[in-house]
Design a protein around this nucleic acid. Sequence first.
DNA 1: TCGAAGGTTGACGCTGGGTCAAGGTCCAGC
DNA 2: GCTGGACCTTGACCCAGCGTCAACCTTCGA
Lengths: 249, 249
Amino acid sequence: MLTIKRLAEYVGVTVRAVRHYHQTGLLPEPERDSSGYRRYDAQAIVDLIRIKTMAEAGTPLPRIQELMTADPAHFAEAVAEIDAALERQIDELRQRRTRLADLVGGDRLFLPAEIADYLQQLRELGVSERGVRMERDGWIMLTANYPDTALEWIALKREQLADPAFREFYLTYDRAYDWRPDDPRLDALADVMAERLRQEARATGVETARMTIQETVSKDEQALLATHVSEYSPAWIRLNELLRQRVSA
Amino acid sequence: MLTIKRLAEYVGVTVRAVRHYHQTGLLPEPERDSSGYRRYDAQAIVDLIRIKTMAEAGTPLPRIQELMTADPAHFAEAVAEIDAALERQIDELRQRRTRLADLVGGDRLFLPAEIADYLQQLRELGVSERGVRMERDGWIMLTANYPDTALEWIALKREQLADPAFREFYLTYDRAYDWRPDDPRLDALADVMAERLRQEARATGVETARMTIQETVSKDEQALLATHVSEYSPAWIRLNELLRQRVSA
DNA sequence: TCGAAGGTTGACGCTGGGTCAAGGTCCAGC
DNA sequence: GCTGGACCTTGACCCAGCGTCAACCTTCGA
């Protein structure tokens, strides 16, 4: 006959757990000796090991209680289910490991692969961290609100980025952030931007698919840009003014 | 800008969880709009996904909070730790699957392999379920109290079981359980048992190793047998009497 | 204009025990 | 025979990480 501590130690659970199982009726209370101590027999060991094994496998205690009195066929069936659940858990843990890997370094956790690739291209191009982060945040919001549209649009952006002239322009625009608002280069940049806008307008006039996208997005784009207007530098604000002059003209 | 539900849905957590993170300070409370609704930006999505990823990997929320403001080097180190923990969890789940398999059919979960094998041999020999269970319970208690001794003793038992004459005797003894106490076959059985005891006494007189084991165990054996005396049948009680007559003689 | 859907705070509930507190018992060594 | 330390008893509160009401306010599409 065993005391509660010997039982718990042999099976590998805590004394508190055993008492908890008694309280909930999962493990029957054993006889007491003359001093009121619980005295356990071999069946208690068998029961407790079964309980422990199933509990460790994630089975809720009430479910274990059901199974302790189930016939062998039902029991085997339930164990098979528990085993399948364990297998699923293992698969999930594996997936979590891969996602965890994306935590350190990379936007792959927050964005579809295409967009994360695009951001990576920007970095490799030499775009500032600030610039990349503004892009990233914009794409995140866009993806959260219109995932399909975001994917269509990113395809266009990556096409653009294949053009060396556009890359040149993008870099300049990125650097202009830190210029002084009276920097004369801003005028030249505004010229380039206006020309690009005009070309794009002609292109979208022809290609209806792109037109649709532009229309769908334009409202949100406004909203997205507005989100970050507070982060605009004096140079960019000035650039906006210059641009508006040229476009409205 | 997102409402709490859109945020939660996009990231894949519940609204309640987001609010919980706000309460504990894990995720900063965002600005409210004019009606008091929370409005989330892209950074909230990034933060929440990081939180979710680490939380799913089993990281306690306070620990996550520490890591959210940690520098990249410390963060990467911590993520490596979390990943290692995940790996250990996967290994443990695998082990639990194997132990779970022993739950259905078999005593391997409760007893060392040698003893489980011995019980299996008894079953194959044709010993009654009751008999096997009495043996099992005895071995469990013995193993719980004196694991080393149990292993030494089981070796002897398995040797005995290799002897066809002993197997024959064991089976008869097992079946005698259900005989009537005045069954004349009990006398013959008592003769055989007495003879066996005498032989064993001579053997243990020679082999000191076995002697030691017998001595060590004898007290506990008494206790163990006493445990199950209540389960003795009338025939077995009678057999005990007959045996005592012959041995004391 | 109205009802459904979504937002707000606040409070209690749940699992599976951990961790005191305040005693009563057992046993080994002196 | 006594004492100290390990063990037993019940009872109570505490924890994470949310789930789940309740009671009320706001927004939005038909």
